[in-house]
Design a protein around this nucleic acid. Structure first.
Lengths: 172, 172
DNA sequence: GCCAGATAGGAGGTATACTCCATATCTTGG
DNA sequence: CCAAGATATGGAGTATACCTCCTATCTGGC
């Protein structure tokens, strides 16, 4: 899984001969929000590599994963389930529908709702791409010592659960 | 460590009466990439709260922080320094320029380059908003037991450095 | 000196992730 | 029953974060 290219060895601000001020360097690397943004970008990059065939994105796969379990969900419930904003979710669903991976129908019970249903093609794709998704997850965590991974996941879950209301897309 | 707030308890898929399938629930919450995306969203939300006055974003503040230390940087070096793609960086710089926080000039030595320089207004703003930035960082980490925070930061740095080349915006 | 390749930037396209405002539909209090 | 509030969606606008293709400029080998 991914031979480390160490020449790329990424710390910022080791700029071209300008004697990259160590103070500033340490500064960015001591901001958790900054590091989380960077790690998120890396995950998106790893995911894109693993899903290069399909062009599918992490959020699209998350939505399809959820839909593979639930028969039908309205757009709002689905968006909450994957932790995205309602309008972002609607956009993602639109793109999934364009690829015929889901179908949207008006709910007969509540005509405000659009029910989203996964198609057979969508269900097949979720199943087929699951190893690719797991590879992206594994590669992300690979640099951590195995015994540290559980701790890291627990830390993430703690921070998310406690700060959930601060997010613009609080989950349910 | 960290009393779980179970009322906010943002777990997905505890949907309206549809008996939120625990299997699926556990699934998303066991994907580190998913959790990192969620935590990133939360940080952006916290940051937006702390910077409500100015409307400044995390990336904009990171860029200004870097510029406050270096006299002048071309757009590519600046983008690499904050770990964003060249074209994303150019967009951010454009918005900073629109608010008169930076100025762009053609480099006399290499006329391909546009040098970005922070203005006095920009430098003042960085200094003034630093407590807000630090508040956002603190709030993000607050749910972790203090003794766990260093571990978490180290884990982030490990994963970022080792996976840096996989990111679409590898840092210098 | 000149041409080939590298580099910096810009333009246009896509995806996520929000904002606010508008519209349609449902639900509930009086 | 009906009007008021809540809810589900849609549309327009903004910001980050990529992509590809293109032009301008610099650098190195000959």
């Amino acid at each position: 899984m991914s031979e480390r290219i160490e020449s790329a060895g990424g710390k910022p601000l080791l700029l071209n001969g300008m004697e990259g001020d160590e103070k500033q360097h340490d500064d960015l690397w001591n901001r958790p929000g900054y590091l989380v943004r960077r790690l998120h970008q890396i995950h998106v990059g790893l995911f894109a590599e693993e899903f290069a065939d399909t062009g599918m994105t992490p959020v699209q796969y998350a939505m399809l994963s959820v839909l593979a379990v639930h028969n039908a969900l309205d757009q709002l419930s689905l968006s909450k389930a994957v932790g995205v904003d309602r309008t972002s979710g609607a956009d993602v669903i639109k793109r999934l529908a364009r690829q015929d991976l889901v179908v949207r129908t008006k709910s007969p019970e509540d005509r405000r709702m659009k029910l989203v249903v996964i198609t057979p093609a969508g269900a097949t794709l979720v199943r087929q791409m699951r190893p690719a998704m797991e590879a992206a997850q594994s590669r992300l965590m690979a640099p951590l010592a195995p015994e540290d991974r559980k701790f890291f996941m627990d830390a993430l879950r703690q921070m998310i659960e406690a700060n959930n209301s601060a997010s613009r897309a609080p989950m349910s």
